[in-house]
Design a protein around this nucleic acid. Sequence first.
DNA 1: GTTGACACCTAGCTAAACAAAGTATAGGTT
DNA 2: AACCTATACTTTGTTTAGCTAGGTGTCAAC
Lengths: 112, 112
Amino acid sequence: MKDQALKGHLDLLLLAVLADGPAHGYAVLAGLRDRSDGVFDLPEGTIYPALHRLEKAGLLTSTWSTESGRRRRTYSINAKGQRAMKDRRQGWEEFSDAVARVLEGNPWPATN
Amino acid sequence: MKDQALKGHLDLLLLAVLADGPAHGYAVLAGLRDRSDGVFDLPEGTIYPALHRLEKAGLLTSTWSTESGRRRRTYSINAKGQRAMKDRRQGWEEFSDAVARVLEGNPWPATN
DNA sequence: GTTGACACCTAGCTAAACAAAGTATAGGTT
DNA sequence: AACCTATACTTTGTTTAGCTAGGTGTCAAC
């Protein structure tokens, strides 16, 4: 994947993964990789701070647990997060549609 | 449009506009705005440095002219730029397809 | 004579993704 | 026992591209 391509779209991806059910960071990481067929194989240094940011913004809540000796922080999307996801999803649609229109080419003769 | 959403995708948009024919910076600005139905209404401080960057990268060439008293720098996409555009276009497809897959939701039961 | 569209420029800021390091457990291999 | 890999989480600091906010100048309209 191209450098910088993710900028501004990661939040939506994380929210979308967590919208299917609570998951801990490492599972989100794996879920994102699998769902995107390997395109979004993101480093931990990307995903953990992003989850912290989303929790701080009040879109996620987290709870600690221990599964077979390993500490896990499980994130759940809340109502505010659901709303934010819908907003960002709409934003994504608008964005990608606009890109598509630009890529489609010029609808009027290139006079000037 | 969301903050940061453009990061990493602007080059493709500029190359796509210029692929329809040479244009000066301000015309690229307007073209992008029109083609995207106002979604990409970008400030000059975004577009001019980006065009400079692309020229420096050898994807565009520019020539100065004067049209009714106003200096214009007209940019043309060259062969290298055409190739770069195809690459980035493919990158965009891959990226947006991957986002779409993630947004589609979980294809397997959310056990774990 | 001021406003607004046209047309260009750049220094400096910001924020988000990332690299790179660290901690720690469990399980398998040699 | 020593080693490695996968799991699981954390944080500091770097990068960079878009944007803010200013600047220069022309022309037409009011």
